[in-house]
């Protein structure tokens, strides 16, 4: 059970983005979890709810997709059978579904907008008409 440590890494990245944006907080965090990511979505949800104050977590569960080196076709990997279902080649690469990824962060930037508005107003008052 390592979901807590991974969700901690996730939240560090989220914090970094909130800071870069000069925002107040993250309101929504969207992640992608594949079958070979090594994490369990339910446990991620649980860890997130305990570690994050108020952001909403959205989990997109994606299928495990691979590409065959021999026939170049893409296919969904079922039951972790890595051989190509079209030509039986074992030389395949995973193209999606083996990671736990941070897809997007929605940041509350009310403060930034308010600050910008104030400076615009200031500019208007000082600029010669």
């Amino acid at each position: 059970m390592h979901e807590f440590s991974l969700v901690r890494s996730l939240l560090e990245q989220v914090e970094r983005i909130v800071t870069e944006q000069g925002g107040r907080a993250a309101v929504e965090v969207r992640v992608e979890i594949g079958p070979l990511s090594g994490v369990e979505p339910l446990l991620v949800k649980e860890a997130f709810s305990q570690l994050s104050v108020d952001a909403t977590l959205i989990i997109d569960e994606v299928p495990l997709m691979a590409r065959c080196h021999s026939c170049a076709r893409e296919f969904e990997l079922k039951d972790f059978r890595f051989a190509c279902p079209h030509c039986n080649s074992r030389e395949t690469s995973i193209v999606r579904g083996d990671t736990f990824r941070l897809m997007s962060v929605t940041v509350d930037i009310s403060d930034v907008v308010a600050a910008a508005r104030t400076s615009d107003e200031l500019l208007e008052t000082v600029s010669p008409s």
């Binding site: 944006q21 925002g23 990824r101 941070l102």
Partner: peptide, 11 residues
């Protein structure tokens, strides 16, 4: 006001 930042990066 919200802004959505696309990341698409491994945790």
């Amino acid at each position: 006001t919200h802004r959505t930042i696309t990341v698409a990066r491994d945790v």
